[in-house]
Design a protein around this nucleic acid. Structure first.
Length: 116
DNA sequence: CGGCTGACGACCT
DNA sequence: GAGGTCGCCAGCC
Protein backbone atom coordinates (compact mmCIF):
# COMPACT_ATOMS: atom_id res chain seq x y z
CA UNK A 1 0.00 0.00 0.00
CA UNK A 2 1.41 3.36 -1.00
CA UNK A 3 1.88 6.30 1.23
CA UNK A 4 -1.36 7.31 2.91
CA UNK A 5 -1.44 10.65 4.77
CA UNK A 6 -4.58 9.62 6.60
CA UNK A 7 -2.87 6.56 8.00
CA UNK A 8 0.60 7.97 8.46
CA UNK A 9 -0.47 11.28 9.95
CA UNK A 10 0.47 14.82 9.02
CA UNK A 11 3.88 15.55 7.57
CA UNK A 12 5.43 18.09 9.83
CA UNK A 13 8.47 19.77 8.43
CA UNK A 14 11.31 19.75 10.88
CA UNK A 15 12.56 23.15 9.87
CA UNK A 16 16.02 24.66 9.60
CA UNK A 17 19.02 23.28 11.39
CA UNK A 18 17.85 19.74 10.89
CA UNK A 19 21.26 18.18 11.11
CA UNK A 20 22.00 19.95 14.34
CA UNK A 21 18.79 18.71 15.93
CA UNK A 22 19.46 15.18 14.82
CA UNK A 23 22.95 15.21 16.23
CA UNK A 24 21.74 16.69 19.51
CA UNK A 25 19.30 13.81 19.89
CA UNK A 26 21.85 11.17 19.00
CA UNK A 27 24.08 12.51 21.74
CA UNK A 28 21.37 11.56 24.21
CA UNK A 29 21.68 7.88 23.43
CA UNK A 30 23.66 6.28 26.27
CA UNK A 31 26.50 3.84 25.67
CA UNK A 32 25.42 0.27 25.27
CA UNK A 33 22.06 1.29 23.84
CA UNK A 34 20.92 1.90 20.28
CA UNK A 35 18.18 3.84 18.59
CA UNK A 36 16.82 3.86 15.06
CA UNK A 37 16.64 6.39 12.28
CA UNK A 38 12.89 6.17 12.53
CA UNK A 39 12.89 6.84 16.26
CA UNK A 40 15.04 9.92 15.84
CA UNK A 41 12.78 11.08 13.04
CA UNK A 42 9.70 10.64 15.14
CA UNK A 43 11.32 12.46 18.04
CA UNK A 44 11.81 15.37 15.68
CA UNK A 45 8.13 15.45 14.92
CA UNK A 46 7.95 13.61 11.65
CA UNK A 47 8.20 9.90 11.13
CA UNK A 48 8.77 10.59 7.46
CA UNK A 49 12.27 11.95 7.81
CA UNK A 50 14.04 8.77 8.80
CA UNK A 51 15.97 8.99 5.59
CA UNK A 52 17.05 12.53 6.29
CA UNK A 53 18.27 11.37 9.67
CA UNK A 54 20.57 9.02 7.85
CA UNK A 55 21.86 11.85 5.74
CA UNK A 56 22.47 13.88 8.86
CA UNK A 57 24.59 11.03 10.15
CA UNK A 58 26.62 11.08 6.98
CA UNK A 59 27.17 14.79 7.44
CA UNK A 60 28.45 14.51 10.99
CA UNK A 61 31.63 16.41 11.58
CA UNK A 62 31.44 16.41 15.36
CA UNK A 63 33.40 13.59 16.98
CA UNK A 64 31.08 13.82 19.99
CA UNK A 65 28.18 12.34 18.11
CA UNK A 66 27.84 8.58 18.72
CA UNK A 67 26.62 7.81 15.22
CA UNK A 68 27.26 4.09 15.66
CA UNK A 69 24.34 3.88 18.11
CA UNK A 70 21.89 4.69 15.35
CA UNK A 71 20.71 1.61 13.50
CA UNK A 72 17.99 0.87 11.00
CA UNK A 73 14.55 -0.54 11.81
CA UNK A 74 14.58 -3.95 13.41
CA UNK A 75 18.10 -3.48 14.72
CA UNK A 76 19.73 -3.89 11.34
CA UNK A 77 22.97 -2.09 10.65
CA UNK A 78 22.83 0.26 7.70
CA UNK A 79 25.75 2.61 8.23
CA UNK A 80 28.25 3.22 5.49
CA UNK A 81 31.00 1.69 7.58
CA UNK A 82 29.22 -1.29 9.04
CA UNK A 83 32.61 -2.67 9.98
CA UNK A 84 33.41 0.35 12.13
CA UNK A 85 29.92 0.42 13.57
CA UNK A 86 30.10 -3.21 14.64
CA UNK A 87 33.44 -2.63 16.27
CA UNK A 88 32.19 0.40 18.17
CA UNK A 89 29.02 -1.31 19.32
CA UNK A 90 30.79 -4.43 20.52
CA UNK A 91 33.18 -2.24 22.46
CA UNK A 92 30.11 -1.07 24.40
CA UNK A 93 28.85 -4.56 25.01
CA UNK A 94 26.29 -4.63 22.25
CA UNK A 95 26.13 -8.01 20.57
CA UNK A 96 25.97 -7.79 16.80
CA UNK A 97 25.42 -10.82 14.62
CA UNK A 98 24.91 -10.92 10.88
CA UNK A 99 24.41 -7.17 10.71
CA UNK A 100 21.80 -7.41 13.41
CA UNK A 101 21.78 -6.04 16.94
CA UNK A 102 20.93 -8.97 19.19
CA UNK A 103 18.20 -8.41 21.78
CA UNK A 104 17.37 -5.26 19.93
CA UNK A 105 14.14 -4.65 21.83
CA UNK A 106 15.91 -4.34 25.19
CA UNK A 107 18.87 -2.48 23.74
CA UNK A 108 16.65 0.04 22.04
CA UNK A 109 16.62 3.54 23.43
CA UNK A 110 13.58 5.68 22.73
CA UNK A 111 13.28 9.40 23.14
CA UNK A 112 10.48 10.94 25.15
CA UNK A 113 7.46 11.00 22.89
CA UNK A 114 6.46 14.31 24.40
CA UNK A 115 6.61 17.15 21.97
CA UNK A 116 4.68 20.39 21.40
C1' DC B 1 14.43 28.82 -8.38
C1' DG B 2 15.14 23.76 -10.18
C1' DG B 3 17.29 19.38 -10.01
C1' DC B 4 20.06 15.87 -7.69
C1' DT B 5 21.34 12.98 -4.03
C1' DG B 6 20.68 9.86 -0.36
C1' DA B 7 23.56 5.80 6.76
C1' DC B 8 15.24 4.91 5.78
C1' DG B 9 10.94 2.41 6.05
C1' DA B 10 7.07 -0.13 4.57
C1' DC B 11 5.39 -3.04 1.17
C1' DC B 12 5.55 -6.07 -2.97
C1' DT B 13 7.28 -9.85 -5.99
C1' DG C 1 15.66 -14.08 2.13
C1' DA C 2 16.96 -11.18 -1.54
C1' DG C 3 15.85 -7.49 -4.72
C1' DG C 4 12.92 -3.60 -6.40
C1' DT C 5 9.34 0.33 -5.88
C1' DC C 6 7.62 4.28 -3.90
C1' DG C 7 6.96 7.97 -0.54
C1' DC C 8 8.86 11.07 2.59
C1' DC C 9 12.61 15.88 2.52
C1' DA C 10 17.04 18.82 3.98
C1' DG C 11 21.14 20.27 1.97
C1' DC C 12 23.97 21.31 -1.72
C1' DC C 13 25.03 22.60 -6.25
Amino acid sequence: MPYDPARHGPHRIVGPGFHGKVQALVKQVPAGRVTTYGDVAEALGSRNVARQVGFAMAAIDDDGVPWWRVVAAGGRLAARSVRAQVRALRAEGVVVKARRVQEFASRRFTFGSSRP
